[in-house]
Amino acid sequence: MVNQFFSYIFQGTSVTVAVTLVALPLGLILGLLLALLYNYGGFWVSRLAAAYSLIMRGVPPIALLFILYFLLSGRLINLTPFWAGSISLGIISSAYQMEILRGALQAVGEGQMTAARAIGMSRLQAIRYIIIPQAIRLAIPPWSNEASIVLKDSSLVYAIGVPEILRRAQQLSATTQQPFLAFGAAALIYFVLVFLVNRGLDLLAEKTKLPTSMA
C-alpha cells in the first residue's frame, strides 16, 4: 500500500520537472534581456525594465496564473493549463532573475566594458563576449536559489488542474487521512529535486570558477 501510495505521488514529479524546465529557462531569457535593458538601455528603457520587475515581484503568482489561464487563454491566446502555468511562473521568475543578473552585470564593472570597447568591440560584442561570461559566473549561486524557488512554486499549477506532486499528496491525504505520510512523501521528493538542482549548479560553479591564486 505504501508503495502504491508513494508511486502515485511520485508520478507528479514529471509534471513538476516539466513545469520547472519551461519556467526557469523562460525566466532566464526574459530576465537576461531585462537586465541588459536595465543596465544598458538608457534612462526610459531602464525605468520600464525596473517597473516590470517591481510589478511582477509584487503580483502573487496564483493571481497571474488565474489571469493568464482563466481570462486571457481562450480569448487572446490558447493555452493548456500546463503552458499557462509554466509561462506564468516563468514571467514571475523573470523579474527575480532580472534582479540577480543586473546585480551580476553591474558587479563585472565598467572597466571591462571600456577595455572591450578600446579594442574595437561594439557594445553588443562586449556584452556578449566579455560581460555576460563573467556575470553568469557571479550569478550562479543566487540563481541556484531561484531555481529551487521555481521548482517549489511549480506546485501552484495544481490550481488550474495540473496534477503535480503536492496536489497528489493532498488527494491521498484526504483519502487515507494520513497527512503526515502523504505530505512527507511530497516533501521528500521536493527535497531530492532541490538537492539535485543545487548540487548540479554547485558543480557547474566549481567547474567554471576562475583560478584566483598566483601560480
Partner: peptide, 17 residues
C-alpha cells in the same frame, strides 16, 4: 475528469475551461 482545487472550479465553468 479535470481535477482542480475546489476554489478554481467555479472559475473553470465560468470561463469554459
Amino acid at each position: 475528469w479535470v481535477d482542480m482545487p475546489f476554489d478554481s472550479l467555479i472559475a473553470g465553468v465560468q470561463e469554459g475551461k
